[in-house]
Amino acid sequence: MENLGYYNGIFGLIEEMVIPMNDRVHFFGDGVYDATFSANHVVYLIEEHIDRFFNSAEQIKITIPHTKAEVKAILEEMAAMVEAEESFVYWQVTRGTAPRNHAFPDTKANFWITVTPFELRNIKERMALTAMEDTRHLHCNIKTLNLLPSVMASQKASEEECQETVFYRGDIVTECAHSNVSILKDGMLKTHPNDRYILPGIAKSHLIMACKALKIPVDETAFTMSEMEAADEIIVTSSSNFCSAVKTLKGRPVGGKAPKLIEVIQDYLVAEFRVYCGLE
């Protein structure tokens, strides 16, 4: 199949799927999601993404109508059914279907999946960033469906011909609209700690593991906008991006001072991915 959708056990082409009007996602964005990609029909880092998915659901008191093993089996089955060698695999759970009411309904949660063709970007191509104040709520660690701030930030990046928007609170850098951001300075990786101000990125955790394996020191403390602007390199990570260096921030050149170190990290992460997906 070219693409594939799933809603509470029903499979079909995405454009043919039908969702009830009273699914609470329509009124409240009442749910959580996770996403990764598949290559060679293997869903990349599936266990870690499912763990985060269940953690997000638990924090907003949604009971997922499947076990972790069942979710994994469904995702793997769907990735195998889509023809593309590389696909974007997205799944979400909503609180259920019920007449509009702010309080939780006594109903079973709804489970959605989409699998669509996806082409990985060349991570050796440097990115352009812009920045804006982080005015989101104080539970950024939950992968909620309420993504309007990220939508606005992504639109800002598009209008400024950038690939991402960096969020900051005061002068402290948090993350990007749909990525994590870290810096390299004097041979050390510095990255925001996993607290309520950022999503605990799985790609970020693998960046940290890669640096430790490569004997690159890691400092998990918050850094400022001025520190980022003066960094040897700025690194953007996401599950579909691995690790990309940055060429400009708000239209001004940044980074470019440790290209060999960036390349070593990138090569390590790409090799990890290729082994995981059975491409080696």
Rank of each mutant, 00 (worst) to 15 (best):
K61R: 10
E15F: 07
T107P: 09
P105T: 06
S179K: 00
M152H: 08
R95Q: 08
A203Y: 01
G29E: 08
A258R: 04
T224Q: 10
K185Q: 09
I46E: 02
I46Y: 06
E175K: 05
E175F: 07
M209V: 07
R169E: 01
Q155D: 01
A109M: 02
T67C: 06
Y44R: 10
F111C: 01
I60Q: 07
I64V: 15
P259D: 11
D232H: 12
M127N: 03
A203R: 11
I60K: 14
H41G: 10
T130K: 05
V246W: 01
D106T: 14
I10G: 00
N146T: 08
A210W: 10
L184D: 00
E58S: 10
S239M: 07
L189K: 08
I10F: 00
I208L: 08
M21A: 14
P99V: 14
D186N: 15
G187C: 13
M81A: 09
T107G: 06
A57T: 13
A73T: 12
D232C: 02
H66C: 11
I235K: 01
L145Q: 10
A245N: 05
S158V: 04
I142Y: 00
A79H: 08
M78A: 02
R169Q: 09
C211E: 05
I262H: 05
A35S: 15
G5I: 09
Y33W: 12
K124G: 10
I216P: 00
D186H: 15
D30N: 12
G255M: 00
A73V: 02
A109L: 13
N141M: 03
C162F: 07
N8A: 05
N101R: 10
L148N: 05
A177Q: 03
L148F: 07
L184A: 05
C211W: 03
A222I: 01
S56Y: 04
Y276W: 11
D267W: 11
V218I: 11
E2H: 15
E133F: 10
R169P: 11
I216G: 07
K247C: 06
R24M: 09
G170W: 10
A258G: 08
I235P: 02
G29A: 04
V32A: 00
F242L: 14
H66G: 07
H49T: 06
V166R: 01
V43S: 13
D219H: 12
D30R: 08
I183V: 13
K68I: 08
S244C: 14
P20L: 05
I123M: 11
L4V: 12
V32Y: 14
S205G: 04
L147Q: 11
F37I: 10
T174K: 04
T221A: 09
A69D: 14
S56E: 01
F11H: 02
R95T: 10
K260P: 09
A103S: 09
K68D: 03
P259F: 12
K108T: 13
M21Y: 00
T221Y: 05
G255W: 07
